[in-house]
Amino acid sequence: MAIGWLTVLKMVPWGDVIENAPKVAQGARKLWSTVGKKSPPDVSDAASPDDTAQTTLSAQESALAGLQTQVTTLQIATAELHQQMLESSVLIQSLAEQNTQLIQRLELTRKRMLALFLLTLVLGMMLLKLYFW
């Protein structure tokens, strides 16, 4: 199972990932600043026809009341979508920041692994020199 993960990790173009991490974080910040500044659409209660009135509405008034109800429904749906967009942009910004931190840690780990490899190589060469001399 670990071999599969190693294969996947080897296939990732880490140079491109490291190079693009700041761009991703910056894009998420721009998205958040753009979305965060927008105010949600104003949802005003539509005037509903008085149920107690005994008057009958004409065809035009009935159509107008139906359209007004649809507009109110659409305004509510738009406000809900705007809220979801705000929450999504916060999540994207958080993920971009975590991605940047992950890339920084991976780069540090890569450098440490390289240093350990070189140290092991030098120690191995010294051991071979001692063994064969």
Results as ranks from 00 to 15, higher is better:
93 Q>K: 15
82 H>Q: 08
97 E>N: 08
74 L>Q: 07
88 S>Q: 05
88 S>L: 04
95 L>G: 01
101 Q>K: 14
74 L>D: 12
84 Q>R: 10
76 I>C: 02
77 A>N: 10
87 E>G: 05
99 N>A: 13
83 Q>C: 04
101 Q>C: 08
81 L>P: 02
92 I>E: 05
86 L>Q: 13
103 I>Q: 04
85 M>P: 00
104 Q>R: 10
90 V>G: 12
104 Q>E: 09
77 A>F: 02
87 E>S: 11
101 Q>S: 15
77 A>M: 13
100 T>W: 05
82 H>V: 03
85 M>S: 11
99 N>R: 08
100 T>Q: 14
75 Q>T: 04
90 V>I: 13
104 Q>T: 08
86 L>W: 03
95 L>P: 00
74 L>A: 08
98 Q>G: 04
81 L>S: 12
100 T>F: 07
91 L>S: 07
93 Q>P: 02
99 N>H: 08
89 S>K: 02
87 E>L: 06
87 E>Q: 04
101 Q>W: 04
99 N>M: 10
85 M>F: 06
92 I>Y: 10
74 L>N: 12
100 T>S: 15
80 E>F: 07
88 S>Y: 04
84 Q>T: 07
77 A>D: 10
96 A>L: 01
93 Q>C: 06
105 R>V: 09
91 L>A: 14
77 A>K: 12
82 H>K: 06
79 A>Y: 02
76 I>M: 11
87 E>N: 12
79 A>G: 04
105 R>T: 14
98 Q>Y: 09
104 Q>D: 12
95 L>V: 03
92 I>L: 14
78 T>E: 14
87 E>D: 08
85 M>E: 14
100 T>N: 10
87 E>V: 01
78 T>Q: 15
85 M>R: 13
101 Q>P: 02
75 Q>V: 01
90 V>Y: 14
74 L>Y: 06
97 E>L: 05
74 L>C: 01
78 T>Y: 09
79 A>W: 02
101 Q>H: 05
103 I>H: 00
